[in-house]
Simulated scan of single mutants.
Amino acid sequence: MSVFALIINASFVVQLVMLTLLAASVVSWVVIVQRGRLLNASRAQLLDFEERFWSGIDLNELYRECQQKPDPSGVENVFMAGLKEFSKMRQQNSTDPDALMAGVQRAMRIAITREAEALDTHLPFLATVGSTSPYIGLFGTVWGIMHSFQGLAMVKQATIATVAPGISEALIATAMGLFAAIPAVIFYNRYASRVERQVSGMYTFADEFASLLYRQSLKLQHNSKTDAVRKVAE
């Protein structure tokens, strides 16, 4: 009546259900560990970049540093997208602050969307495992109990010793379903919340960066008007 013996002696369908749940559990833990490391690194990179950004460093120098990295972080990609769009529109002699900001914000929103998709990768798998594993385990339980009752039809006298193995092997499938589902649900909810906070942090940085660029664009517009008046006066 050991657990291992019950699994070995279970019917083929129940064994297949158990194998499926075991595989789902293993893959879920791989995703949990991988996503956890990624989110921790992403959060640390966001804080480090914001500290460096507000330290007073020249934006062009910071852009070159980010560009030289083999794998820039999410917030660095947002920063580079915004500054690149700002420089491109300036080269096109666009000095209208509203037009500049519209282009910059659009570029940063696209970058944030891409980073959010990267952070969300594999999280739907955890949600799927968390929602379907109990039902898969329940299917194995129902099938095992059906198989157990079919065996009772061939016995003249039913006893607990006759029924117990079949029901026990069936309940193992439910237990394995819960074993796979519970961690998946817990970590999906936790990681989804962390991704939301991370994306919110990138949006906050994008708004602050856009405000800084907007002030700079107003200054450029003022300088261009001053130069134009000076040329007319001359």
Rank of each mutant, 00 (worst) to 15 (best):
P97Q: 07
D207T: 08
V229P: 00
F125C: 00
V142D: 12
W143R: 13
I110P: 07
R37I: 05
P124W: 10
E50V: 08
M1C: 04
S193Q: 09
S42P: 00
V14W: 04
V17F: 08
A10W: 03
L21P: 11
K156P: 02
G36T: 13
S73V: 00
Q67F: 11
D207S: 10
A107E: 06
D120C: 04
S55Q: 12
L83R: 11
S168N: 03
K225Y: 06
P165E: 05
P97Y: 05
R106C: 02
I32Q: 03
F49E: 06
F179K: 02
R114K: 15
M154G: 07
V104F: 08
I160S: 13
L100Y: 07
V142I: 15
K231Y: 06
G103T: 11
V129R: 06
P183Q: 03
Y203M: 09
Y214W: 01
A175F: 13
Q15A: 05
L152E: 14
K225P: 00
P70Y: 11
V104P: 04
V27I: 14
W54R: 04
R190S: 15
T162N: 10
T162M: 04
G82D: 06
L19V: 07
E117M: 13
T162D: 02
A161M: 09
M101Q: 12
L212K: 12
M154S: 10
I160G: 05
A116G: 03
L39T: 00
G166P: 08
V30N: 04
W54H: 01
E234T: 11
N93K: 11
Q221L: 11
E117A: 13
F4G: 05
N93T: 03
G74E: 00
S55T: 10
A153V: 10
A127V: 01
S87R: 12
N223P: 01
M146Q: 05
P97F: 04
S200L: 02
Q221I: 00
A23F: 11
R64Y: 00
R194E: 08
Y191D: 01
L59P: 01
T95W: 10
M108D: 07
I136K: 10
M176P: 00
F12M: 11
Q67W: 09
A180R: 13
R194H: 11
E117G: 11
L213T: 00
Y135T: 01
F187L: 14
A228G: 08
L220R: 12
S11W: 00
R215T: 12
H147S: 12
A107I: 02
F179N: 02
E117C: 01
E61S: 14
I167D: 03
A164I: 08
A10G: 13
M80T: 07
G201T: 03
F205V: 03
E76P: 01
E50C: 11
T95L: 13
G140A: 07
K231Q: 06
F125Q: 00
R230I: 01
T204Y: 13
A161W: 03
V33S: 06
D48L: 15
V155S: 06
F149H: 03
M80S: 05
M80R: 07
S217H: 12
Q198E: 14
W29L: 13
T95P: 00
V3Y: 14
S73A: 09
P70Q: 14
P165T: 02
A184S: 15
L47V: 10
T121L: 04
